[in-house]
Amino acid sequence: MTDGTPAQFFDGLTAGRHEVRVALSDDRQALQIAGDSLPEPLRWPLADLRALSDTSDASRLTLTRHMHTDDEAPRDPARLVIHDPELIAWLHRTRPGLFRRDLHKGTLPKLAKWAAGSVAAVLLMLFVILPAMADTLARIIPIEREVAFGQSVTRQMERFLGGKRVGALVCDNPEGKAALNKMLTRLTDSREMNYEISLQVFDHRMVNAFAAPGGQVVILRGLLDKARSAEEVAGVLAHELAHVENRDATRNTLRAAGSAGLLTMVLGDFTGGAAVAIIGEQVLSASYTREAEATADEFALTMLENANVDASGFARFFEELEKMEGKSAGLPGYLSTHPVTRERAARAEAFAAGQSGTRPILTPEEWKALKAICD
């Protein structure tokens, strides 16, 4: 090393590369850097040497040096690239602080303050700004745009629930579909709807149903499995139709989509996987306000009354779910999205007690076909 070993030197100010020779100084306290293109030899004290880990490997070592600058990392802009294995090994062996990161005094508290500010800004966006924007957009978005958005959300939900392709989870038994359409027609015939309802059943064991923007409603097979009568399913369907008509689903999904977009930017997920997961989880576990739930209940009961459907099935379904709460790990859905209260069930029971002239919404054969729609 005393005769010098070839290296490349970059001054950090120009793009030029200087072919130099590097040697250990006579006092063994510094590297001497000399070259024909350098104005004068340079002396880099060993104590100041720092290696750039992202441009260094077994065959090359890129060095800079610690020095006072205004940057967060106080380092000389110049770079010295060494290829000599013996010198590289010697530096690794004798300079334990070679890869140390240098920061100005007070930098860590400053970074902590910036991080706290960034977290606060993200939380403000998630819980204040995005909800306000979602409420505004839900009121002004054209219906055709809302329908397209809802169809996209429904496709994402199918992917979230395990569908490998669009339509993979859709249950399409003809007799079951006919019974489902009959139920929807019976409920909506007496009311002018803002949307053309698209109603599907997904083949998934979760006990749940959800509304997406623009008239998209999905029932999961698990809910059909747990229901004991077609009137129970009709009550749930009427409740979800209320969320569609009141644009609750649109507000909630716009908020989820905004949150997903913000978090994917923060997390650096540009494949969209995180967005699908966030939107999917939010749609399945949507927590509407007490006011929205009460309004949806009233809408559902009125719809059942106008269709001459016994509303006691609506109350009975929630009572059954309440009994099953905590007994089954496979029952996350409807209890978390639409919390059951005795008041809600009692209100539906009282409403049903005042009904007269009701008739079954499906025949026994049609109910059997609906329960087998995924077969």
Rank of each mutant, 00 (worst) to 15 (best):
M1D: 12
T2E: 14
T5H: 10
Q8N: 12
R17E: 13
R17N: 11
E19Y: 05
E19C: 09
R21P: 06
V22S: 15
D26V: 06
L31R: 02
D36G: 12
S37K: 14
L38A: 12
P41V: 10
L46I: 07
R50H: 03
A51D: 13
A51W: 08
S56L: 04
A58V: 12
A58D: 14
R60D: 13
L61F: 07
A73W: 09
D76A: 11
R79F: 07
L80Q: 13
D84N: 14
H92S: 01
T94R: 10
R100T: 15
T107P: 01
L108K: 07
L108W: 13
P109R: 05
W114T: 15
A116S: 14
A116G: 10
S118K: 04
A120I: 05
A120K: 04
I129Q: 02
P131H: 05
D135C: 03
L137I: 00
R139D: 13
Q151N: 12
T154H: 07
E158P: 11
L161W: 05
G162L: 04
K164P: 11
L169Y: 10
C171L: 10
A179K: 04
M183I: 13
R186F: 08
S190V: 04
R205P: 02
R205V: 09
N208V: 05
F210T: 09
A212T: 08
Q216S: 10
V218K: 08
G222K: 00
L223S: 08
A230P: 00
E231N: 01
H239E: 06
E245R: 04
S259E: 06
L262Q: 00
F270D: 15
A274L: 13
A275W: 01
A277Y: 06
I279V: 15
Y288D: 03
Y288T: 09
A292E: 08
A294F: 01
T295S: 09
D297W: 02
D297C: 02
L304S: 00
A311W: 01
G313D: 04
L321F: 12
K323D: 10
G330W: 06
P332N: 11
V340I: 14
V340Y: 11
E343L: 01
E349S: 07
A350Q: 11
Q355K: 04
P360R: 06
P360S: 09
P364S: 06
A369H: 10
A369S: 14
